[in-house]
Design a protein around this nucleic acid. Structure first.
Length: 577
RNA sequence: CGGGGUGUGGCUCAGCCCGGUUAGAGCGCCUGGUUCGGGACCAGGAGGCCGGAGGUUCGAAUCCUCUCACCCCGACCA
């Protein structure tokens, strides 16, 4: 590709609305331009990269027996209402104003609607179906350039199986395909379990790329054996134990003390573990006529609640509203505790660290008062214990073999075992060997195409620009002709260009006239093609061509006669790493 | 949705507080010339309804009201 004919608008300055490296560089390198919030135009260079990623995805999906589809983005409201997701998605789904249609954010329903009349016998199963298609999500706040957009390209795949063992197999195949895809894309990635075991059979894994710009917080053990989303992460945590001094509970005045910090300050103590932090939650009634249930949860004062863990134990749980608190506890937030609750039906649970602990201090359920010497074993009948705390940076793994660290990550892929939810709702059934009806068992597997590119750039850039390598690089070679208006350098470069093309390389040839060499070099570093080849008067005089590796900055002067051999070696080495 | 911020040539921004020539700079662009290995130089030139609407005023980029868009932090989501 000749630069002079290609539309590749590079920018010298940082665009004012970009903040994270990948966004800045994708705009500066002429890959994308923003049209409106969360919506981007893909320019030729960007499209080239995205298509390379799609090619890898296709090859790996095909390799596990996937069949490629292309489904509509428009779909009828009705279909979404059938699975209840029209409501579930709420404002996050784009709706068409003058038709009863939505712009699909994902395709479980549509794929299942095709499966239903066609996958009707166990003989039709299993199937892995996929597509690479534009998705629409009305993100309340798009951010990070192409990392979180309102319109983006997703590879979504769905598996259909007759048995749960079959689902495991399909799931594992997809997981392997994902590992292959991300490896080929040059990403350093890891997986985290997105659901804890509490959900039973339903497994789910996220494929993560560590990056400062990531939106997820994850914990990884230093030996890389354990990784998890912070929300559900577990660590070794020691029970704070009993003191067994047998002291009676005692109320004391704590004027205007609301937080654990304030309480610790008031009591002039630094160890907050025995200051039990209480929070009231509401578990909404599951059916008409039933009442909402209330839950008081306790963690150590130096810990935080994991609402995700709570939600996994108590479906539908939500924090109590300030107005509700007084009714239930008899006090406002900051003075609530497990003893003397106004409403006696409140269920009380505590974190495992507090199991059977005594001499605790907590709210007295009376504004501006706390109680000390609380003994959970003695004073709180029927208390139950669960893991409901959030892991902290630097803690040990459960088996104490390694330390945990916290980091930010970008989710580039997510796979999960759906089970029968969609097939059930839409009535997708098959007949088994015995002629009996069964609901099809599904899995769902997604990959964000643009996110892969953005994640790659987050991991591979320097102050000068992007550093591509391997299969997703837009070109193999960036050929630069350092030519004056009236010399034969450009003709020499053109000759080399044609030879490289013939040899099968994808070459970006900066053939622009009247552009000073510095501009060409800066553009080349910004665009980041792994190998730069410089043809100039200076080198040609000695019968040499220069090769520069983008990542290392290493330069080699090569005799023209050795050039073909040498370039092959260098490219080979780069792709190996 | 809550909080904060920004809209001024293609890009990055100054000017706004404290209203008053013809609205500026750098980069980019066009013409001519000189340059030619890390974002060159000289000379000349084009390009703006100062986001939009209303208001205050003799006079508004500047003050007031409303509105739209975009960005950031949070909430939400995957």
């Amino acid at each position: 590709m000749k630069f002079s004919q290609y539309f590749l608008p590079t920018l010298k300055e940082v665009p004012s609305d970009a903040v994270i490296p990948s966004h800045i560089l994708m705009v500066r390198a002429g890959m994308i331009r923003q049209l409106t919030a969360g919506v981007y135009s893909y320019l030729p260079l960007g499209l080239r990269v995205f298509k390379k990623i799609e090619k890898i995805v296709r090859e790996e999906m095909d390799a596990i027996g996937g069949s490629e589809f292309y489904l509509p983005a428009l779909s009828p409201n009705e279909l979404w209402a059938e699975t209840g997701r029209l409501e579930d998605y709420g404002d996050d789904i784009f709706r068409i104003k003058n038709r009863e249609l939505v712009l699909a954010p994902t395709h479980e329903e549509v794929f299942t609607s095709i499966a239903k009349p066609n996958l009707i016998s166990y003989k039709n199963l299993p199937q892995i179906w996929y597509q690479i298609q534009t998705k629409f999500r009305n993100e309340p706040r798009p951010r990070g350039g192409v990392l979180r957009g309102r319109q983006f390209t997703m590879k979504d795949a769905y598996s259909f199986d007759a048995t749960w063992e079959g689902l495991d197999e399909s799931y594992n195949k997809n997981a392997q395909a994902y590992r292959n895809i991300f490896t080929r894309c040059g990403l350093k990635f890891f997986t985290v379990t997105a659901f804890s075991g509490a959900m039973g059979g339903s497994e789910s894994e996220e494929f993560m790329v560590e990056a400062e710009a990531g939106e997820d917080t994850v914990v990884i053990s230093s030996d890389n054996k354990y990784s998890s989303n912070l929300e559900v992460a577990v660590s070794f945590s020691e029970n704070i134990g009993r003191k067994n001094s047998g002291l009676e509970i005692e109320e004391f005045h704590t004027p205007n003390i609301k937080s654990i910090e304030e309480l610790a300050g008031f009591l002039k103590i630094t160890d907050k573990s025995r200051l039990a932090k209480s929070r009231l939650f509401v578990i909404p009634a599951k059916s008409e006529g039933k009442k909402d249930e209330y839950l008081l949860a306790l963690v150590c004062g130096d810990d935080e609640f994991s609402e995700t863990k709570l939600a996994k134990i108590f479906a539908g749980i939500r924090p109590g509203h300030p107005e509700e608190l007084f009714d239930i506890a008899g006090a406002e937030a900051g003075s609530i505790g497990p003893v003397n609750l106004k409403n006696k039906t409140v269920k009380i649970i505590a974190d495992l660290k507090l199991k059977d602990a005594d001499e605790l201090i907590s709210g007295a359920c009376k504004n501006d008062y706390h109680i000390k010497n609380i003994d959970l074993k003695r004073d709180v009948v029927g208390i139950e214990y669960f893991d409901i705390r959030t892991v902290k940076d630097g803690e040990e793994t459960v088996d104490r073999s390694s330390k945990l660290r916290m980091t930010k990550a970008i989710e580039v892929g997510h796979i999960f075992k759906l089970g029968t939810r969609y097939a059930e709702a839409l009535g997708a059934k098959y007949l088994d060997v015995n002629g009996k009806d069964n609901v099809i068992i599904m899995g769902s597997y997604g990959i964000g195409i643009e996110r892969i590119a953005a994640a790659y750039i987050e991991q591979n850039h320097d102050k000068d620009g992007i550093i591509w390598s391997g299969e997703i690089s837009p070109f193999d070679i960036h050929l630069i002709s350092v030519n004056k208006k009236s010399d034969n350098i450009k003709a020499e470069a053109e000759k080399i260009y044609n030879e490289l093309i013939t040899a099968g390389y994808e070459v970006l040839f900066d053939d622009r006239d009247d552009i000073s060499p510095g501009v060409k070099f800066k553009d080349a570093d910004l665009i980041g093609v792994p190998v730069q080849v410089v043809v100039s008067d200076k080198n040609m005089k000695n019968g040499e061509i220069e090769i520069k590796e983008r990542r290392t900055g290493d330069r080699y002067r090569i005799q023209i006669s050795d050039f073909n051999q040498k370039i092959k070696e260098i490219i080979g080495n780069i792709n190996k790493n």
